[in-house]
């Protein structure tokens, strides 16, 4: 999962980043509300861990600015103040949960997991990228409305690429996340399956698609979903991909 930490205390921010990374999340940390909001708009993380006392837009202002704009992002508020009113206000502004400082690391990670689980239950099951649609509930893929038959691994690979919303996935990451194999496995299975996917999706493409590649190779890095016009490029659902940015 991609987590954004907005915390002005460097010691706590760094610790949270380190701790949640060890939990297997891709974590970015920023130190003020303004940057946090900007980052959230650009990266659409799965979870924001938001401190309330922040410079350049406090946590409440960030929540107000986020209202109704981030359906796919869960927010866990961290607060050092014990007033119930403050926590109620945060929840009314769209926060999913509040955690009172000082908290235990185990409680923080358990709450993060619970929020992400809850979010998955209510998310749109359809991932879209241009003319490609993948329904995670029905396990069906279409391109231009035409059904594309995929094997289990092909489906998992496409799903992972779609969840990354056009960002690059390295071969080692794909090996680890889709095949549960070590990055040192010394296999070209990723390239082989990307080829299968390209062929199957290519066969279902419209004749006037401008020859754009559904899956692009990023030289020396890996693969990403091909660039399409912004008007049709949209991914919805419950992303679990990795976040590239760090604080």
């Amino acid at each position: 999962m991609r987590v954004l930490i907005v915390e002005d205390d460097a010691s706590l921010g760094l610790f949270l980043q380190k701790g949640l990374k060890l939990e297997g999340h891709e974590v970015a940390w920023v130190g003020d509300g303004e940057t946090g909001l900007q980052f959230a708009v650009e990266q659409q993380p799965d979870l924001i861990v938001l401190d309330l006392s922040l410079p350049r837009k406090d946590g409440i202002e960030v929540l107000e600015a986020m209202q109704g704009r981030f359906d796919g992002t869960a927010v866990l508020v961290l607060t050092g103040r014990s007033q119930v009113e403050e926590r109620v206000k945060c929840l009314n502004l769209g926060a999913d949960d509040c955690l009172l400082k000082p908290f235990s690391f185990h409680e923080l990670t358990a709450r993060c997991r619970a929020l992400l689980r809850r979010r998955e239950q209510f998310a749109d099951p359809v991932l879209r990228h241009g003319d490609v649609e993948l329904n995670r509930m029905d396990r069906k893929v279409t391109r231009h409305g035409r059904a594309v038959e995929l094997t289990v691994k092909e489906f998992a690979l496409l799903e992972f690429l779609l969840l990354r919303r056009g960002r690059c996935c390295s071969r080692s990451e794909l090996l680890r996340e889709v095949w549960q194999m070590s990055p040192d496995a010394g296999t070209n299975v990723v390239d082989v399956y990307v080829n299968y996917l390209r062929k199957k999706l290519g066969a279902a493409s419209a004749e006037d698609d401008g020859g754009y590649s559904v899956i692009e190779t990023v030289r020396g890095e890996g693969y990403q979903m091909g660039r399409v016009g912004k008007a049709v490029s949209r991914v919805s659902g419950y992303p679990t991909g990795a976040m590239c940015a760090g604080a």
């Binding site: 010691s11 006392s53 050092g80 103040r81 690391f105």
Partner: peptide
């Protein structure tokens, strides 16, 4: 006192979590 207590929460949180993480690893 409320402000001062709030100020104690940050290091206390890091202290508690840091030790938990050390123990976990």
């Amino acid at each position: 006192i409320d402000v001062a207590l709030h100020g104690l929460c940050q290091p206390l949180t890091v202290l508690q979590c840091r030790l938990s993480l050390g123990e976990m690893l």
